[in-house]
Design a protein around this nucleic acid. Structure first.
Lengths: 135, 135
DNA sequence: ACGCTTATTTGCAAGCCTTGCAGGTTAGCA
DNA sequence: TGCTAACCTGCAAGGCTTGCAAATAAGCGT
């Protein structure tokens, strides 16, 4: 995801408006590696801007995802998680604390059974226990 | 997943009862490689047994999953998919038709960034276009 | 700085998938 | 055959997300 300033420019160029609500979300997401859910972002945003609507959070997240600035990931936890890092990487989720860590796969795994299947994207999720929870 | 006969025995030994509804679902799932959702199974079951409840389908699927006979997989499509194949394998989902194919990974990928993370399970989902839809 | 047009915000309600609950029913054992 | 515990069913509710309509505000040109 680009910086809040760059995003503001990109939004305007797309005919979208840059509102205080959106600017706040840009700031909350930029460089955020915690893979927050819409719910968590709503809580954070509410602290800085009481009265902001959950609907607006979803709206902006969807806009960003459509623009390719954000990745929406479903870990099967019931709610989607959002990741401003759209470069190629994978995830490891802790069964204990629910934290999601970024993982970088060094070499693509070889696979059997993909007869004629054209792979567009590979999603790898490791489930286990993170270092913090193991101690 | 074991055969319907073996499952019936296992259910009784666990204090669970073997009802016609459950036997039907055992048969519908045994050897099924289509990764059906609860909804699809309900439709199939309804043909053979009109009046069966969706609630019962969910109940039995959960029982089987708890016994380790069935795998519940969330592909982010909104509803869970069920797989009677509980041996180690991965999946490829077609963006066009939604079909899910089994994939067997020859060698585990190497990953960077898992500092101290104890991996219990690795879930790999390939997204793309299957051979049938490409033609 | 002002007004206009169009996108946005908000709150509420509804949608989808799944589970909790209660009452009548049935499997499985003695 | 009878008893008891588990089960089936239908309905309602729960959590997450989106549709909708009215009020609001951003961004343009003047």
């Amino acid at each position: 995801m680009r910086s809040p300033a760059e995003l503001s420019q990109a939004f305007r160029q797309s005919g979208l408006k840059v509102t205080p609500q959106r600017q706040l979300l840009f700031r909350l997401l930029h460089g955020n590696t915690s893979h927050p859910s819409a719910d968590v972002l709503f809580a954070l945003a509410s602290q800085a801007m009481p009265g902001i609507s959950l609907r607006t959070v979803y709206q902006t997240l969807n806009d960003l995802a459509l623009m390719g600035e954000l990745q929406s990931i479903d870990f099967g936890t019931g709610s989607a998680r959002f990741d401003p890092n759209v470069t190629e990487h994978q995830h490891a989720m802790c069964n204990e604390c629910g934290a999601v860590h970024d993982v970088f796969v060094a070499d693509e795994p070889k696979m059997l059974g993909l007869d004629g299947f054209d792979v567009h994207a590979a999603q790898i999720v490791y489930h286990g226990v993170c270092a913090g929870c193991a101690s």
